[in-house]
Amino acid sequence: MRIVVLVKYVPDATGERSFAADGTVDRAAADGLLSELDEYAIEQALQIADEGDDVEVVAMTLGPDDAADAIKRSLQMGASAGIHINDEAVHGSDSLATSTVLAAAIAKAEPDLVVCGMASTDGAMGVVPAMIAERLGWPGLTFGATLSVSGDTVSIRRDGDVASQTIEASLPAVVSVTDQSGEARYPSMKGILAAKKKPVQHWALADLGVEPAIVGLAAASSTVLETTPRPPKEAGRIVPDSDGAGSAALVDFLSAGKYI
């Protein structure tokens, strides 16, 4: 069985994230790393590989040169190979174009299962897995808190607000998993050394038969008109709770705001 895990290289959420002049995420402003939410996807794929015979886990990323780091980290964690889709024309692509490119790359890679994180930690839309499923015409099992594969059936548990559902489908399928699915493993020393020898393929749009004109900033189906940093919040009142002063201040606050 071949599993493709989609991984994204994102600016570190704990750094100073901002926008470039063209309204795209400024990749130079903060250090990049593999989106933490994709580590859960890799973990789930690796668990399937640990339990099954002959399971290949391929980490696939779409991004510029430095996105190679996301592949590297995936390989260190235990993925067997990488595919890096890198093409200048892709810069500024929206979710629709991103899903077009990834769907074409998945069709070329011919996996039995695609595993994604629940959302990226930068764009955070959480829509690409569903879009890919829609484009490929494959079942989409999204936001799994658990993931299991048996024979050619994949199933997840999806914890919604009103119900907890079990969803099942036949392979091939697209799955996304949440951060409830279980801690991701750290790369071992052995994993880090082994990663250096693992194969990484490099694909461009031409390899996928995707027209450059339908992706990128110019083709985006929505435009960013303006980006503004939120003004820093005015310092509030800080009250130490000695002799009940804190709870009294809180009651006053609630009463002044007409919350009580």
Binding site: A13, S18, F19, D122, G123, S222, T223, V224, P229, R230
Partner: peptide, 15 residues
């Protein structure tokens, strides 16, 4: 609002 509420983005669909 994006990036954990630190930025505000105005956007428009054009397709």
């Amino acid at each position: 609002t994006v990036f954990a509420g630190n930025w505000s983005v105005t956007a428009q669909v054009r397709t």
